[in-house]
């Protein structure tokens, strides 16, 4: 599913260079649930954004299903993200002026069909949000917001979910709930790469990658 070969990312910051990823090499198989761990600043988020086609590496190769991600045009990468990748972030990144249904449907490329609307409704039902469809994100608890972000990530039936500390702002009960939904996606054949500090994911992850100063230290 994913192959990273000698991926390096260097940022320029205040005149000096910071290496966020240092010759990172790893593979993630189809249907695998991989946890990524490491201290703050170890390059976990950079890795996730790079895998999602959002952050061009300074060097190295990133392949998704055999395709060189950064050999594609920005428009092709955007289409790929829309159809095959779902994102979940620690800060939810919901659009504050759209209601819950609108936020879920935002993932749909173009005008949502009746079928897509039905799926959005089903997802909200599964994630316990059906009765809040007309509310705005500002009216939800943190756990509900993250469940909404998960529903949005699942709408287009992606093959891969990239989750960046999705439980970082949640209490243990809500964290377990979110991980449970990601695990369900995994059981259905989906691939998950999840950046986390928490322990709740241990029971579900097939493998853990540990990063330190941009380098893979445990695979």
């Amino acid at each position: 599913m994913i192959r990273c070969d000698e991926v390096t990312k260097i940022f320029s910051k205040n005149g000096s260079e910071v290496m966020s990823l240092d010759r990172f090499t790893a593979e993630v198989a189809d249907g695998e649930f991989v946890a990524v761990r490491g201290p703050s600043g170890s390059g976990k988020t950079t890795l996730l954004l790079t895998l999602g086609g959002m952050q061009r590496p300074s060097e190295g190769l990133v392949q998704l299903a055999g395709r060189d991600l950064y050999a594609m045009s920005p428009a092709e990468r955007a289409r790929l993200r829309s159809s095959e990748i779902g994102f979940v972030f620690q800060m939810f990144h919901l659009v504050p002026y759209l209601d819950l249904l609108g936020n879920v449907l935002l993932a749909c490329p173009g005008k949502p069909s009746a079928e897509v609307r039905q799926r959005a409704g089903e997802l909200m039902d599964e994630l316990g949000l059906a009765d809040r469809a007309s509310h705005r994100p500002g009216e939800l608890s943190a756990g509900e917001r993250q469940r909404l972000a998960v529903a949005r990530a699942l709408l287009n039936r992606p093959k891969l979910i990239l989750a960046d500390e999705p439980t970082g702002n949640l209490d243990p009960e809500n964290a377990a709930e979110v991980i449970r939904h990601l695990a369900e996606f995994h059981r259905g054949g989906g691939t998950v790469v999840l950046v986390t500090h928490g322990e709740v994911v241990n029971a579900h992850a097939d493998r853990t990658l540990s990063l330190e100063q941009g380098r893979l230290v445990t695979n």
């Binding site: 955007a78 829309s82 159809s83 990144h93 919901l94 659009v95 935002l106």
Partner: peptide
């Protein structure tokens, strides 16, 4: 800015 970021992540074009 965050909205623009998430729209991009969801595959919306320029």
């Amino acid at each position: 800015r965050q909205e623009i970021g998430i729209l991009r992540a969801l595959g919306k074009g320029g």
